[in-house]
Each structure stands twice: as structure tokens, then as C-alpha cells.
Design a protein around this nucleic acid. Sequence first.
DNA 1: GACCAGGCACATC
DNA 2: GATGTGCATGGT
Length: 220
Amino acid sequence: MKRRGLLLAYYDAMAEALGPSRWWPGDTPFEIALGAILTQNTAWSNVEKAIANLRAASLLGARELRDLPVAELEELIRPAGFFRIKAARLRNFLDFLEDACGLDLERLRNADTGALRESLLRVSGIGPETADSILLYALGHPTFVVDAYTRRILHRHMIVPEDVGYDELRDVFMDALPPDTALFNEFHALIVRTGKTWCAKKEGKCRTCPLSRFLEPQAP
DNA sequence: GACCAGGCACATC
DNA sequence: GATGTGCATGGT
């Protein structure tokens, strides 16, 4: 109850400072899911280059990629880094999609969220953050996406320990907030944007962060 | 030239 | 079960 109010106050402070996020960039559920895999430990600007390559080759779809030799896929996604491993992960994901929905992601939109999440986590190369990103941003399921910025910010605000686990951190949000897709969508986006701007690994920019007032002693 | 970026799987102890 | 390491490009 108290936690819910605090988290929503964080949300409001970030929203006021940054404005709407319009996440996730991408025209189709598949493009969004693709981006979720390509952006693993990678700057989004590099992912954009890889997606642009696929778009230019008219290969920005599950069916198109399904028949592409892995060596060609590797070359196209090379700018996103870890290209060999990510090409293999994309193949695993495409195999999953073929089996789960005949390569039509729209058919997963009304699936049971928990069961679908478990299925995604069984795909080699899809971990909890990628699974939650696909569920929330590509398919509109109400699951909260946790990432390195979420952990860093909440740790610096002494809300969680630094080594808090993924699911535990996700539960901080999901236990406190209503399962609202639009809210979860924008909340995670605001956290990433705030983290990028003010919460680098090396501390120092906290003074101008929209969340800095939460670090100061609260007035009585 | 070091450090970082919207992780994950796997080896080793 | 915890801890360490490889994976690779491009920007600061």
C-alpha cells in the first residue's frame, strides 16, 4: 500500500520530467520481439542498424527470416554485436514461433500470460528480461520488465539490495501495482530513459535527476 | 584506450 | 548455488 504510493510517485516524477516514451519502437509484434533479442546487453543505436539491414533486405518478418541461411542472418545483424550468438537465438525463437503460433504472433496475444512466459523461458537465448519485453511490448501482456537500470536505481534509493534477483525485483512492482499493460509499458520505458540520462554506473549526475528528491530526507 | 550498452548460457568450483 | 567468463559492435 505504502509501496504502491511510492512507486507511483516515482512514475509521476519521471513522466513529468521526460514526457511520454512511445515505446517500443517497431511496426509489428515480430519486429519488437526481434529488437528485444538484438538489444541484449547492447546499445539500441546498434540494434537500429541491424533492423535497418533486415528492412532493406525485405526480411523483417518471421516467415522471411525462417528461410534465411544462418550465415546471411549473421551478416545482416552484425552491427548489433554478439551476432553469432544472436543469430542462433533468433533461430531458436523462430522455431518456437513456428511451433507455438505458426509464425503469427498475433495468435499469442490472448494466451495465458504465465504459461506463455514459461514457454518463452524454455527457449535457449530468451531469459527473463527478454521474455517480459516480448510479452509486454510485442504482445500486450501485463508483465513488468526489469533491467539493469531498474536494479541500479532502486538500489541507489535503498529500496532493494544490489544483488536482488530478477523475479524478486519484478515482484516489487507487480505486487504493488495493478496489472495494467499501459502502466507497465510506460513505467519501464521511463526507468530506462531516466537511467540512461542520470544513473550511469559511475555515480555523479544524481543532483539533477527527477528522482533525486526521493533520496533526500522527507519533511515531517 | 578504457569503459559502457535495454542479457544470457555455460563452465567450474 | 554462487561466481566467473565468453560473446562483438559502435559510441563516448
